[in-house]
């Protein structure tokens, strides 16, 4: 039975000194957190429409990164990992919310999309956000990433776990729907 590599290291060093060096030695999580917290919470808030959940999502994404910081040495790779985590965790938030809605009696707090920034938004912006919220998930995510995140098409595909071709087609379907909805409302 071949011992695990990690166990070998343990035997040799009498502990895991090599591998248990502070995580900051690989990717400086605190620096990454301070630099990207605001961007990521904004991104999550666009996806889940509720700041409290968005903040939770970002905390959880960093916790997940913290657990596997060993394998991520490049800040860029770490940031890509965080973006993907935010997307996936946001999807879970929305799924949980839909389940909660089906069982109204056990609805969790914040189960409605808060979307309560209305007093802060202009008319056409509010209408656009309402219309985007009503789109199918992929289309919604693609439009948010394309018109807000500043990422390339390839990075968008990577963040969402879909092909660049799917990004393009989801974007054009989404835009066509928005054209119809918003065009008629403001005609």
């Amino acid at each position: 039975m071949a011992p695990l590599l990690i166990v070998e290291a343990d035997k040799q060093s009498g502990g895991l000194t090599d591998r248990s060096a502070p995580i900051a030695d690989r990717v400086d999580l605190h620096a990454l957190y301070n630099a990207h917290w605001r961007y990521l919470v904004r991104f999550a808030a666009l996806l889940v429409d509720d700041v409290t959940s968005a903040e939770d999502v970002v905390q959880d994404a960093f916790v997940a990164l913290h657990r596997r910081a060993d394998s991520l040495r490049e800040p860029d790779a770490a940031l890509a990992y965080l973006r993907t985590s935010v997307v996936n965790l946001s999807r879970s938030v929305i799924r949980r919310r839909q389940v909660a809605r089906k069982h109204l009696k056990v609805a969790e707090p914040e189960a409605t999309p808060a979307a309560d920034y209305d007093v802060l938004l202009r008319d056409e912006h509010r209408a656009a956000l309402v219309a985007v919220r009503a789109l199918p998930r992929h289309q919604r995510e693609v439009l948010i990433l394309r018109y807000w995140s500043g990422l390339s098409e390839r990075e968008i595909a990577q963040s969402l776990g879909i092909s660049p071709g799917s990004v393009k087609s989801a974007a054009s379907r989404g835009m066509a729907t928005l054209q119809r909805v918003l065009g008629s409302e403001f005609a």
Binding site: R38, V41, R42, F43, A45, L46, V51, A54, Y117, L120, L121, R122, E124, H125, R126, A128, L129, V132, L143, I144, Y147, W148, M175, L178, Q179, L182
Partner: peptide
């Protein structure tokens, strides 16, 4: 126009939330 509206809306939403 639509693109501009979306950029504006996402940006305003982002700033309103954080």
């Amino acid at each position: 126009d639509l693109e501009r509206t979306l950029r504006g809306a996402f940006d305003a939403h982002a700033h309103a939330s954080v």
